[in-house]
């Protein structure tokens, strides 16, 4: 050998080397495949976010938004469910009750959009740490917390959720294609912005 062989040589390289040394002797294995036809690149699917179609159904942005907002909304609903029993501040509890109604309505519509598009019910983000999304561990901690400590964590978690929900909904409004999905995103932007303002009002920030 003229030089050290790479320690992590793959089979292809090993085989090619052997082929070079023993081209005639080695009758099996390293046969030369027929040349492949030349590539004929054809962008069959243009970048979905760039499409401008109006009534052509959901694009990749619509699908991504629906598939992300379902687990995000499910997780925040679990938080809002805890608030009446765990929270201390009456006004925060009232905010949570109203937000719960909004989020449940949003979740119902998201699931309808998902089913209409024939998307699986699988959570494609399971086990990932996602911006603004409460994890099962976060919820387990909140489950063990009450009073002012709960309120503090509740405000931080709801604020992170709402901020992320607004960012995502605006992305869907900008880059989505399906009108029903974009309409729901507009509703989410509006409701989340209202809830965010109320939260700031209550916490004096």
């Amino acid at each position: 050998m003229a030089r050290p062989t790479h320690r992590k040589t793959v089979g292809a390289q090993r085989c090619a080397l052997v082929g070079a040394v023993l081209a005639v002797l080695l009758l099996t294995g390293c046969a030369t495949p027929a040349a492949a036809p030349p590539p004929t690149p054809r962008p069959a699917e243009p970048p979905p976010a760039a499409t401008t179609s109006v009534a052509s159904g959901p694009n990749a942005t619509d699908t991504a938004w629906v598939q992300l907002m379902i687990p995000m909304t499910e997780q925040v609903l679990a938080l809002l469910d805890l608030t009446p029993d765990h929270g201390a501040d009456q006004e925060l509890r009232e905010l949570a009750t109203r937000a719960r109604t909004d989020h449940q309505a949003t979740l119902d519509q998201l699931r309808q959009l998902r089913d209409r598009a024939g998307l699986p019910t699988t959570n494609v983000h399971a086990g990932h740490r996602m911006p603004g999304m409460l994890t099962t561990d976060d919820l387990a901690v909140l489950q063990q917390t009450r009073g002012e400590d709960f309120d503090r964590r509740f405000v931080a978690a709801l604020r992170a959720h709402l901020d992320q929900a607004i960012t995502l909904a605006q992305g869907e409004q900008r880059s989505g294609a399906d009108q029903d999905t974009q309409r729901l995103a507009a509703t989410v932007t509006e409701a989340s912005t209202d809830q965010r303002a109320r939260l700031d009002q209550l916490t004096g920030s």
């Binding site: 970048p47 942005t61 740490r129 996602m130 995502l168 992305g171 900008r174 880059s175 989505g176």
Partner: peptide
């Protein structure tokens, strides 16, 4: 931009 095109903040 491949899996969640157009949707900032949509990925891990």
């Amino acid at each position: 931009p491949i899996v969640y095109p157009g949707l900032s903040g949509a990925s891990h």
